[in-house]
Design a protein around this nucleic acid. Sequence first.
DNA 1: TATAAATTTGTATTTATTACAATCTAATCC
DNA 2: GGATTAGATTGTAATAAATACAAATTTATA
Lengths: 135, 135
Amino acid sequence: MQFYQQQLKEKGLKTTYQRLKILDYLDTHRTHPSVEIIYEDIKSENPSFSKTTIYNTIETLKAHGLISTLTITGSEVRCDYKTDMHHHFYCRSCNRIFDVDLEQPLQPGSGLQGYAIDEMHSYFIGTCPACLKKK
Amino acid sequence: MQFYQQQLKEKGLKTTYQRLKILDYLDTHRTHPSVEIIYEDIKSENPSFSKTTIYNTIETLKAHGLISTLTITGSEVRCDYKTDMHHHFYCRSCNRIFDVDLEQPLQPGSGLQGYAIDEMHSYFIGTCPACLKKK
DNA sequence: TATAAATTTGTATTTATTACAATCTAATCC
DNA sequence: GGATTAGATTGTAATAAATACAAATTTATA
């Protein structure tokens, strides 16, 4: 928790129990959880936690580069503690998102001159190995 | 319209006025429109067009590979007549999506062995040249 | 032209997200 | 340390996108 506190301070953000809790949750749950999942999990220990706080905090933490978000499922935002560029695979069957490694990671090229880039995303959609086996 | 009809036939889909109209709309509006935009535009000429039909048709056409969809704005699905792999830039300021060219297009690598891939997406989020100029 | 299967339509519902005002809390100053 | 204040949290209400569903309509085939 010491580290999260330092991160918040560096960004000029107030230290709050909720922010620390959400950072800790995302750090220890690298499963690209939705707001709903985060909410259910945290609420079970801490019933006063509000879902709005999760939306607010996600937005704040993201705006300051402490976390990132994915919109690849098409139905809800998924959160990621990692902020470095990496690739994802979304399995439509089990609804999970996997980190995947590629030989040639995406790079902005000359085709993007003149654009100010805030985020880069690359991902695949399909069926994961585990779900393929089941069929 | 002849061509769209042929495309539908090849995929074993019934020819309907609505499907032809939506295909034609997307072909002539390469602006990655949302369902809402498509609906408003088509409805103005054709008041009986239903929004549900657009959702249904988008899903059907996509399932048969005649169009593709993007979830990069995080708030609504955007449609694309093009189905070949290409890259996008989403401008948060004007809400437009641009096609962009990269030197190194994304390729599934060995890190994806065992996965069945249906879709590949790469995109950037930020501010487009026109919006940068305004500021 | 009659028929069956598929499609369209409109409405109702669900689900994710945002707006907002009241309450509460963390950081700062004395 | 205690008061102050800006900022954060909470809960509820509202919005917006997408889905479910059943009735009406249309397409393709015989």
